[in-house]
Amino acid sequence: MSTVLYDAAGPRARNRYRLYGLLTTLAVVAVLAYVVWKFYDTGQFSGRKWSIFQYEQVQRTLLSGLGNTLKAAATGAVLALAFGVLFAFARLSDRAWVRVPAGLVVELFRALPVVVMIFLIYYGTLANAGSASTFWSVVIALTIYNGSVLAEVFRAGIAAVPRGQSEAAYAIGLRKSQVLRMILLPQAVRAMLPAIISQLVVLLKDTALGFLITYRELLTEARQLASYGEFEFPTIPVAIVVGAIYIVICLALSLVATWLERRNRERGRRRTADRNVQMGAGEPDAGA
């Protein structure tokens, strides 16, 4: 829609845009050149630094780090989705003693930094049990934070389902739990799928917080590799490789979210169009 901000450029404007484009390109090239020069100047391109990736041990370490990142993300995602559905239902309950505490829990956990929750769980179990699992500290913290956010997403999604749906369901004699489970939730999930996946990207990114309590995920392993003196402390090469891994995984998930969003929109439009045809073209329609 941003294209309405400006007219199709005339000859003078086109020249001006070309000039700005050139200046931008020059600026970007200058920045990149500075970065490359800085890398070169401090010896980041030395073969010794990069040779670390040739060793099978190092490759295994990176893979195991990646595996731990994905394991925490997958466990956290499943638990957070369950937590989200549970608390969304609880917040929609007719009974105040269920609704109010659930609301408080969700509001509280959304206000707390994940880092603080990780430390709370970690130190808490450390003090009570003598030892603490870094894996579960990360997973539980990610579950309650993202679960609380997802609970709000589900709730918004359920609220956005047209009222006729639940009215019709009640009219054919379904109970409230049936209406929620069979009628509202499936429609809400489909409408909110892009938002849900975006939140899962956030969850995946936040597994890197395990670094702070030395859970052996990708970033913790990266720090380990970066400290090897015999490879001239390859912080930058390791960071480039690890950063690329993160970006590829998150970008792939984000692209799924955008694709779903586009598909939803197109489907909604098609359905509206079909209905318009049935009702007679040009009939006003509130759908989609």
């Binding site: 990114k205 890197a208 970033l219 912080t235 960071a239 950063g243 993160y246 970006i247």
Partner: peptide, 25 residues
């Protein structure tokens, strides 16, 4: 925007706090 939004903030910290000193910054 695409690059930064798909990177964990902890990694950005890692790059800046540990990487910059290696670049003499």
């Amino acid at each position: 925007v695409t690059l930064l939004r798909n990177t964990p903030l902890t990694f950005v910290f890692f790059f800046v706090a540990f990487g910059f000193p290696r670049l003499d910054i």
